[in-house]
């Protein structure tokens, strides 16, 4: 890897992220495993354990997970410049595709058949979101920890019934999350020293 020139590195980073973003349907949860395959197995640039840490970091940051993970891979390989290259590789394909689609949409939205197709798809999208919520909610419920379950129920009521601003919901649940983490880490430390 030492002999690899900067230019080759940037080109490969751009090419990899561009193609993953261009041809992968389904967002971060599909793109990230493919990224892992590309950079760990095919190119051998990052080892498995470090990649897992990068993926965890990507999921811990705000923003799209696929974008976050690609920035991390770029940063790991070539610093800030590398991150710029991979983030461009990731956002240029959707930028091109969705811009074109926006124009097609305006042109055909009032067409009767297009309208019927979109009406059908609406029900499909509703099914997808319900499925996503079910899966995410289940992951929290099965842990059987009382605080996260209470936070989820409280946020649901606050959001739907009282239409509380999202900022406040995130702010308060973030504080509760931070406090419980500090408490758990302290418990663990005390356990270790005994």
């Amino acid at each position: 890897m030492e002999e690899m020139s900067k230019k080759t590195l940037y080109t490969e980073l751009f090419k990899s992220t561009f193609f993953l973003s261009m041809f992968t349907f389904g967002g971060g949860y599909v793109i990230v495993p493919l990224m892992e395959k590309k950079f760990v197995k095919e190119l051998g640039w990052i080892n498995e354990d470090e990649m897992l840490d990068l993926i965890a970091l990507g999921q811990s940051s705000p923003g799209p997970i696929a974008v976050n993970t690609s920035i991390l891979v770029g940063y790991r390989m070539a610093g800030v410049k590398g991150a710029m290259v991979t983030v461009l590789g990731t956002i240029i394909p959707p930028l091109l595709i969705m811009t074109a689609l926006a124009y097609i949409y305006i042109a055909v939205r009032d067409n009767a058949i297009v309208n019927n197709v979109l009406l059908g798809m609406q029900a499909g999208v509703a099914a997808i979101i319900v499925n996503v919520v079910y899966n995410m909610g289940k992951r929290i419920v099965v842990k059987k920890k009382i605080i996260p379950i209470l936070v989820m129920i409280a946020a649901l009521i606050a959001g739907i019934v009282y239409q509380v601003n999202i900022l406040w919901l995130l702010f308060f649940s973030g504080i509760i999350g931070a406090l419980t983490t500090f408490w758990e880490l302290r418990q663990k430390d005390e356990g270790d020293t005994q």
Binding site: D53, A56, L57, Q59, S60, A126, I129, V130, V132, V133, M136, G137, I140, P148, I149, V151, M152, I153, A154, A155, L156, G159, I160, I166, L169, L170, F172, S173, G174, I175, I176, G177, A178, T180, T181, F182, E184, L185
Partner: peptide, 23 residues
């Protein structure tokens, strides 16, 4: 990254509720 991960995990239940509300 334990503390960052902890805070994010604390956010997750609220995020699920928010997605449910958009859903």
């Amino acid at each position: 990254i334990e503390i960052v991960q902890g805070i994010i995990q604390g956010l997750r239940p609220a995020v699920v509720a928010l997605i449910a509300s958009a859903g």
